[in-house]
């Protein structure tokens, strides 16, 4: 009992530790004073000032574009990898494959960034592509590391799935491809959405990889923020940071809410279907008795 209350206390303190700084940042972004540490009343002027900053707006658009492409590609790639890891149990190089999928999760970003840049430079020398680094190279870098996150999320879901549903479909003559698209995909849809959103957020946030593989004229939002932050705390940056913070929090909440709703719907549908089959199997037995 004593330990239980200790862990609860730590939990509350830990959550305060995590959320208090972000809350302070958001509150101070509405500060009217130019001094970041003195409170001068509420104001929206830093937010309005952002709209005039065309360079910043350009980088926002660029980051959003990359994040969209990354989310799509990472979900496809990550789901394939997760499917191989959970369903194809035996093939040559499986250990290597598993390592390749999970290693990007922990690999320091400076190493991944540097190595990818060297690859792109070598490729440009050898096959003439990519001639200049920019959106595509950042997209490749982000997809590679986001796919690992998607693979973890999706494989967790694939593992808890009831294999008998897929097996039943195959017994009834469905081809593997059909089973995958009609049975497996709908059942793992919530985790696909979660993985996609996660990739979107991760891509939007990444500074180190983008700094290495971007070229001139393809500055992303985090790079823009970083070069400003290096010079110290500024009210405009407070506003940008708060906007990103609020956008990502809202997105996270929405993913969580919808995936929970979908999950509840799915459970209810299964329950209903089972009830229905149960009552259907009852009927024929009763009909001959009454007739």
């Amino acid at each position: 009992m004593k330990r239980f209350s200790f862990s609860t206390l730590m939990l509350v303190l830990g959550l305060l530790f995590i959320y208090l700084p972000m809350l302070i940042l958001v509150i101070y972004s509405f500060n009217a004073s130019k001094l970041v540490t003195v409170w001068g009343g509420w104001s929206l002027k830093w937010y309005l000032g952002l709209l005039d900053n065309t360079q910043l707006m350009g980088s926002v658009a660029r980051s959003l574009e990359i994040a969209c492409y990354t989310a799509v590609a990472a979900v496809v790639l990550g789901t394939l990898a997760a499917f191989v890891l959970t369903r194809v149990t035996r093939f040559k190089g499986r250990t290597l494959f598993g390592g390749l999928v999970t290693a990007p999760l922990v690999m320091p970003e400076v190493i991944t960034g540097l190595s990818l840049l060297l690859l792109f430079v070598a490729m440009a020398q050898m096959i003439g592509w990519p001639m200049e680094r920019g959106l595509v190279t950042i997209w490749i870098a982000h997809t590679t590391f986001c796919a690992a996150y998607v693979a973890v999320v999706v494989s967790a879901r694939l593992r808890e799935l009831d294999l008998s549903i897929e097996e039943a479909a195959m017994d009834l003559g469905a081809r593997p491809l059909k089973v995958f698209f009609l049975i497996t995909i709908p059942m793992i849809a919530p985790s696909l959405a979660a993985g996609g959103m996660m990739s979107f957020a991760l891509s939007l946030d990444d500074l180190v990889l983008a700094s290495f593989v971007s070229g001139p004229g393809s500055t992303t939002l985090p790079m823009e923020v970083f070069s400003a932050v290096r010079l110290g705390v500024k009210p405009e940056i407070n506003a940008v940071a708060s906007l990103i913070l609020m956008a990502v929090s809202l997105m996270t909440f929405m993913v969580w809410y919808f995936s929970r709703k979908a999950e509840a719907n799915r459970k209810r549908a299964i329950q209903e279907a089972m009830d229905q089959t149960a009552s259907e199997t009852w009927q024929p037995q009763r009909t001959p008795a009454t007739a």
Binding site: V229, V233, F253
Partner: peptide, 21 residues
């Protein structure tokens, strides 16, 4: 969800929040 949410927000921004504090 509360624990997971910060991992999706930029490390850059969360570190920046501490600079002011």
């Amino acid at each position: 969800l509360l624990i997971m949410m910060p991992t999706w927000t930029a490390i850059l921004i969360r570190v920046y929040a501490w600079m002011g504090i």
